[in-house]
Design a protein around this nucleic acid. Sequence first.
RNA 1: GCGCCCGUAGCUCAAUUGGAUAGAGCAACAGCCUUCUAAGCUGUAGGUUAGUGGUUCGAGUCCACUCGGGCGUACCA
Length: 542
Amino acid sequence: MKNYIKSLFTKAEEKLDYLKDIKIQLSVPQEVSHGDYSTNAAMLLTKKLKKNPREIAKEIIDNFDIDESIISKIEIAGPGFINFFFTVSYVNKIVKVINDKKNSFGKSAKYNGIKANVEFVSANPTGPLTVGHGRNAVLGDTVAKLLEEIGYDVDREYYFNNAGRQMRVLGNSVAARYRELLGEKIEFNDEYYQGEYIKDIAKKIYEQYGDKYKDNSEDDIFKDTAEKEIFKDIKQTLEAINIKFDNYFNENDLYEKGEIQRLLDFFEEKNLSYKKDGAVWLKLSELGQEVDKVIVKSTGEPTYRLPDIAYHKSKFDRNYDLIIDIFGSDHNATYPDVLAGISALGYDKEKVKVIIYQFVTILEKGQVVKMSTRKANYITLDELIDEVGKDVVRYFFIMRNSTSHMNFDLDVAKQQSDENPVFYLKYAHARIASILRMVKEQNLNASFDNLDLLNTETEQKLVKYLHKYPEEVMLAAKNYEPHKLANYLENLAALFHRFYTECRIIGSEKELAEARIALILAVKIVLKNGLNIFSIEAPEKM
RNA sequence: GCGCCCGUAGCUCAAUUGGAUAGAGCAACAGCCUUCUAAGCUGUAGGUUAGUGGUUCGAGUCCACUCGGGCGUACCA
């Protein structure tokens, strides 16, 4: 529908030069009486042409070459909107299109062959994933899926660091628990990781090696075993919500392959770094940032900035055209430094899109739960998945804009999981499946011969909404906003449920019944395609 | 103090990127199952979009200031 209107404008441009100066915006009015599509083109031209917008609208319409089998009416309304009305038979053609395309309806080839890298989760292996990581994980995976839907070739990547202070503390924590197991009285340092999982790891080491490491608290065995075990759990948790990564990128590689040193040399050579107080500083003030920052501490250890820049450089070197980072709002002050470093290296930082999501406030018994991995004060993602299930977890984290500071009341989630909107979507799908089973018993089959019979207001609304699906996918993908698609699906389900109560299939005339079957098949396909993007089951029964 | 994000119905959140009368779900109230799944549908009620000013044909959306909340503001990651 939209494309047809655009073609009208393109043709009209040959006669009306001024149309070339504006971008034609088409929107679907909220009010049905304002047509199927509406444009503000005439209003945008008032200044330039110094004419009344309604006069301009009239001139534009007079220059349209209209096919009456497609457009039933065009009118000028309000201050100068041009409203388009489509014919029933043209609108209903989509039902056949969807049934023909099935799974591929909504997919686009627009970005075929373009390589994208989506980096998300990226938690260091110091403890189990918490509910806080959930938003990151689901957002990243869904953004990746949306990009695939419009043609991108996407790699999902997890970046982690198994060196550094945090991991040493982790190793020491396990060693302490290990000695405790051997009967030693230990003082469990406040700085140590307090969680029960530390004891489990210590126990594993004890079961395998006995007291072999009794006097070797510094041995790598503690850190290495902890890392391995924790990573195993993290991967399991992610798999439980259908998330798999293509690449695991270890920060250590950057050191071992000399990338860090090379980068340091480069900055020095280009006179972009200098020494002060025994540390190496990057001249970020010359790269568009406020102040210079340290990249190598006086101890000789790099700060996170250096490896982060090197890491992003590696993404460019691996030929990604689109590089997406999913970060929590606590990172919002750090990435501009990295981007500045990247452009200093001569890369196009526009290819990097940083998606900052706001933290979810977790409430339990009316209290805010503050999360800390080290203090073992957290609710794990596993617990949440066990409690409410994979689909609810996934839907919950993408149903709202990532800019929203969501509240999540655990008690409500546990009690009212039946009232979660995700069930509403699933129910619509299951309901259609059920109708189709009944219809089969009555020997009725979908038919596309009499789609014009779908002419009630309820049916037309539903059909027109189906038209929008591919556009909604594109919009959600290009803006990295999965919640838009969630809203779309909820509206679609609502329109279907209404159709269900108002329009019967069994009991209607055969022609009408079979046209309606074609319609609900189309709705089922779109619901399923949408839920598939969210990795949520579309059940045949509930 | 400074930077980023947010403030919309009692609660949780939308709003086609500046469009026409700001919409859903919970919660409340009143209805709808001897016919395809009532995890559903219909209706009622609920709003000075935190506040004040500005920009224009037109502002929840853009700008300025004020108030309130979140996250940062390291030679931690």
